[in-house]
């Protein structure tokens, strides 16, 4: 399938509930507010645990509802932050996706491709080397595997 042509001024900020995500959003706000033509996609990917994690379908449904609600609330806060800084409401898009994600980085990059974003912005968690060794690092993986887009890793 032919990929969509990326739009340089179309930016994806991958966010979760962490302070790192807040730093990423603040960075974009400080850098780009007041500049015309930028479109911001605030995207939260929630990796869905395997079916084994839940003892029943109702538990799974409840889990997803809570996660989505919490993510929407966080995204709304970030959206307001950008609007208050001068971004137009119509230029900000928010999305919460619960996905089966063997790799969160791959899920984020799939969204980047799908939305034809020219840049992916992500906050660095600052995990220890040990943690990266066992569990991997999403920002490192995005840095190493992203194609046709810029990657901003915010400290």
């Amino acid at each position: 399938m032919e990929s969509k042509k990326v739009q340089k001024r179309n930016i994806l900020i991958a966010v979760d509930e962490s302070e790192n995500a807040a730093r990423a959003v603040s960075y974009v706000r400080d850098l780009l507010s007041g500049l015309p033509g930028f479109r911001i996609n605030l995207v939260t990917i929630i990796p869905e645990p395997s079916e084994d994690y839940f003892q029943s379908e109702s538990e799974r449904t409840e889990w997803m509802k809570e996660k989505k609600s919490s993510a929407r609330s966080i995204l709304e806060g970030f959206r307001r932050l950008l609007i208050d800084a001068g971004f137009k409401e119509g230029d900000i898009r928010v999305e919460v996706a619960i996905k089966t994600c063997p790799s969160i980085a791959e899920c984020i990059l799939a969204e980047q491709e799908n939305l034809a974003c020219g840049a992916v912005v992500i906050g660095r968690r600052g995990i220890s080397k040990k943690e990266e060794f066992i569990f991997g690092s999403t920002s490192s993986k995005i840095l190493h595997t992203a194609k046709d887009c810029a990657v901003w890793v915010i400290e």
């Binding site: 994690y53 063997p102 790799s103 569990f135 991997g136 690092s137």
Partner: peptide, 8 residues
Amino acid sequence: LHRENMFG
């Protein structure tokens, strides 16, 4: 619950 690398 894995994080970035499912099999790490």
